[in-house]
Simulated scan of single mutants.
Amino acid sequence: MKTTSSQISLIFFLAALLLFTGGFAGQNPPRSLKGPPFTDPAETQAMPEDWINQPIKYDPSAGDADIVLSLDQHLYPALLPMIQKYAKEHGLKIVVNEGTCGITSGMVERKTVDIGGFCCPPGKTDRLPGLRFHTIGIDAIALLVHPDNPVKKITIGEARQIFMGEIHRWSELKSSNKEKGFDIPIQVVGRLHCKLRPGHWRLLLDNEDLFAPGMQEVGAIPDMISQISLNPGAIGYEVLWNTIRYKDKGRVKALLIDGYSAENADHLISLRYPLYRVYNLAIWEGKGVENPHAKKLVDFLLQHTKDLPKEHNIIPAALLKKAGWKFRGDELIGEPK
């Protein structure tokens, strides 16, 4: 049977359409802008045998400590009073270092601490042999703007467009209950910490390349608060506790996302509010690295997360388990369906 020129043209048209729309059978759909919330807990970072056999050895500054911890800058102020009380009641010398996830990760890998505290879920390279993660809880990440900004709410889609640089002025928002005349440029402010770990800001946009070229990047939480408070057109992100902790850096306010609030625990537990941090404690298990005192301390902290001051806004792991979040042992590993 002869093929006519019109049939040939139709074949080429359909082939081109399939190519540019990704319509071939079995082809993966376009990748979501949202990054992965967690890594696979079954994957463990390979380490040499001499490292595996290496015992825990504290830095000389820890002296004759019974337990040594390194906590990130979120968990340190939240847990320190509880740890100090526990140490006094049990007659233990507990040394607590304040750092970042990066600093804590380094101390854990060097095996100079019994417990490491993180504000992110573990990345693949954090899952070291003998190290087990226990989730304290989660905390909403708020989208923050200048207090004089009349915008009160945006959609998660608009938030992504803003941080990608696709929406340039506040007056371009369609969902907002903005006041007429608030037509000023948007200045995106970002703090791209823990790039290799899942969750946190990567729930907004998966990687740094997706953010607007004109984004003002800051390296510290106080600078995030300060830059937003100084610019009526700015938008950034941080947990609400840090807006209280660094209130001397300026005033900011939180936006609703899709009508849901970072201040409402039920909105986050149900994942109607989509952005959050995961707080974890990592502890050693096994011969030569396990510290019974450290295990009891972690158990105590997990049991008493509910007793933390309300301004920390940490939703305990126990409530997440009841709501259908996925756990492996004490570690949060997946969102609810």
Rank of each mutant, 00 (worst) to 15 (best):
K295E: 09
A234S: 10
Q7K: 13
L240F: 01
S175I: 04
L297N: 09
P198S: 02
M82K: 14
E263P: 00
N97I: 06
G123L: 02
I11C: 00
G329P: 07
N264K: 10
G190F: 01
E285P: 00
H193W: 09
Y279A: 06
I141L: 15
G22Q: 11
D50W: 13
S61A: 14
F13E: 13
L71C: 02
N177M: 03
D126L: 04
K34I: 09
E49W: 02
T243L: 05
A262R: 03
G63E: 07
A15K: 10
L144K: 13
P55E: 07
T4E: 10
L75R: 04
G157F: 03
G99C: 09
L332A: 03
S9W: 06
V145F: 04
T243N: 05
K178L: 13
V239I: 15
L79H: 00
L10D: 10
M47T: 09
L332S: 04
T155R: 01
A254D: 14
I141P: 05
K34T: 14
P185G: 12
H304Q: 12
G23E: 06
L205G: 01
W325I: 03
F13H: 03
T125W: 02
N291Q: 05
P77S: 06
P309M: 08
A262Q: 02
E290H: 10
Q187E: 13
I333R: 07
L69R: 05
S105R: 15
G35W: 07
G288N: 15
G22D: 08
K310T: 12
E109M: 13
L14D: 00
E238Y: 01
S5I: 13
K178Y: 00
T104E: 09
V68W: 04
P198N: 07
P185F: 07
F12T: 13
M164Q: 15
Y76T: 08
T4A: 04
L144W: 10
C120R: 13
P48D: 11
I56R: 07
L320A: 04
M107R: 08
I52F: 02
A294C: 09
N291F: 03
K322W: 01
I138L: 04
L33D: 11
I141G: 02
I257L: 15
S61W: 12
D330N: 14
F118K: 04
I11R: 09
L205T: 01
N291E: 10
N242T: 07
V145W: 05
P274I: 07
D223M: 10
